[in-house]
Amino acid sequence: MNFDLLLASAITLSVPLVLAALGGAIHRRAGIVNIGLEGHMILGALIGAVVSGISGNWALGALAGFIAGGFSGLLMNVIITRLKGNEIIVGLGYNIVMFGVIGYVLRAAFGVSGTLQFEGLQRMPKIDIPVIADIPVLGALVSGKDPLFWLCIVLVPFLAWALKATTWGVRLRATGASEAASASLGLRTLGIRDGAGIVAGALAALGGVALSLGTVGLFNENMTAGRGFVALAAFYFGRSRPLPTALACLLFGFFDALQIRLQTVGGFSPDIISTLPYIAVVVVLAFTGIRQSRRGARALS
């Protein structure tokens, strides 16, 4: 098995995860668990493919997907914050609606069942770095990647910095940690949460763009394949901090790449590997839960 190939494919597969998980992490820091990442992703994938297909310009497609995702994130967030909908149910329902609408529109407006292809669709370019491309490991790590990979490289430290060092970041964390106290200090907590919802939707949609305008260059209604939930697992695993979250995505992307490899080689089951992110989250939750419950003074029953 060629390790460089495996590594390169792990990184490619983790780009959509990282984008969506970073969005989810930001939303989580603002106090909302975003179950709708999957829906935002599929929307981004579609819009990205359609706009790139019509304009023949991948950047326009990515931008359109990003903006559509922002609206999508805002819409879902408003239902949670203003209409006081339970975040879990709203998120699950939102996914169902989003997939329903997209599946419906594909058939009713485009007349296709599931897969949408455009003649003029422009995929994202792969950026080869001369010299480095030939270095083992390092070449696989950084050469031949699309622009969204480089966006991730920039985004992770940027978000970590922004959470710490900007007024937006401080207020976002304060709102997520204690909405009542933040509101009593005059913070516009609903607005802050809406902003985080927009970021979550936009980044997750960009993750979708990475799928449709990445290697394949088409849209399929099943192309997210649960990645929104893997992203959810990733930010739970990374405690909603950008770098650990991104590393969790890398790990899960590696599982994914391994699984694809093993499919051709045989041996370990891809289905079992696909459950690893979720098992990891349960383990983390169990750990923290047990540790916390050791402290309470009030007895349970």
Partner: peptide
């Protein structure tokens, strides 16, 4: 108190 435990005292 309106102190947010997850933030530092300076924050």
């Amino acid at each position: 108190l309106a102190i947010i435990p997850e933030l530092s005292l300076l924050e």
